[in-house]
Amino acid sequence: MIADLRALVDRRELLADFAWRELRARYKGSVLGFAWNFVNPLLQLIVFWLLFGVVLRTRPVTATGEQPYAIFLFVGLLPWTFFATSLQSGASAILANGPLVKKVRMPLQLLPAASVLSALANFLLSVAVLFAVLAIFGPRHPEGLVWISLLIVVQIVMNLGFAYLLSALAVFFRDVQHILGILLLAWYFLTPVLFAPSSCACSTSIR
């Protein structure tokens, strides 16, 4: 197992190639192409902001008080998208590369890792946009940036775990990919991305 893990480091160029290929392939042939990686979360942000922020007038309250809904949503949506994309593309990492897996001898553990890596690259690019938005509109808390790298590491480990487990399971049980979509949706609503935990009736039990 250790030797297999080491292959991820030894073959990092191949790993980066796979990740890059996945980033490009996702929106291949579309007019906006690579830009969809940014437009997608932005459109999601607008839809939810209109529904919850404008129509339902949600006012999320965090530890230091009320936050503008669009900013609150943006901060939660990006790490969630990183998580959900890692799981979804991770789950199909082996199935989608069937011909490659059958014909080419290579360390297969690169494939799920490449899915997570491409989701990570996407996430880091959109976090740069988030930082610019926070710098312009506030709230400005540069002291909080210290913790972000730690959170990203926790997420990478967790996402890799899911990606390996799901990609292998999906080969034997094709249903995994379909169930995953519904599970992620339910999980999404249970996680405080759209609302602050303080606004939930069960706020003491939610962490």
Binding site: A63, I71, L190, P192, P197
Partner: peptide, 18 residues
């Protein structure tokens, strides 16, 4: 995931540790 998302919100919106 709740702890992770809330930690992002605490760090960026409140400037607080997780």
């Amino acid at each position: 995931m709740t702890a992770v998302i809330v930690s992002y919100q605490r760090a960026l919106l409140d400037g607080l540790p997780p």
